[in-house]
Amino acid sequence: MVEALWGRIGMMAAYAVFAPLIGGLLDGIDRKISARMQGRRGPCILQPFYDVAKLTKKQLLSVNKFQLLMVMSYLFFVMLSGALFFGGCDMLLCFFSLSTAAMFLILASTSTHSPFSTIGSHREMVQMMSYEPMVLLTAVGFYLATGTFRVMDVIRTDIPVIAYAPGFFVGFAFVLTIKFRKSPFDLSTTHHAHQEVVKGVTTEMVGIEYATTTVAEWYENVFLLGVVGLFFVTSNPWSYLVAALAVFAVYFIEILIDNTSARVKWQLMLKLAWGVTLVTGGLNLFILELI
């Protein structure tokens, strides 16, 4: 019992240390693959780390210092959600913690009273409203497949969750595009500051603020991809390899979609996200409850 507890704490610590490394690397790979898709050479894979390192050294130009505080709270709650997840806790708690984190990001952005970040944060809220139902449903899907919301019990299953919940998987992968703010759902901010709302949510974030946000996003991405992997994990150790492959496949598809689609309006995003949620998640839910 005590050993198990230490194991879980170890996993949390490992997440806290390695998640930004993995997240940063994935970001670098993303940039490289995107560049190759567009026929460019692309930056070095370690470029995101250099960027963040440089950001931390910049002078803090700030409109409202309140923003820095909020951004740090955002980072904390993202880390908490991931730590709860990798520590094997209740999945609904992880997602609620993630919602709280997202709220801090919005508060950070609106505290500046900047026109661009305000528009960005409202778009971000619509994005949240679009993906939230599917995210919660995903937790329900795990529950129906394994009888528990606790991650540490989910991984002891003999048959991977994907076998019961393919619909939830598809739905989750769909809203992941919104969550990652990748095109066609890059409404609130993008990695390119040449859109009509400049950089949306992060417009007024400078130096250390932007670095913190970036690192928080890495944490968040690793956590979300962990959820993707959880669909494939069983009590068999080899399943972790399958899970890793699945995560890479999903990530690659996200990059592909990002590079091949144009941004949509929020109305269409909301319609699509809720529609997909209803069709994939709802139908899967209905079938699981029947049997």
Partner: peptide, 10 residues
């Protein structure tokens, strides 16, 4: 934390 107050980007 030292910061330099700036105006909002418009």
């Amino acid at each position: 934390v030292k910061d330099k107050p700036v105006i909002v980007y418009m």
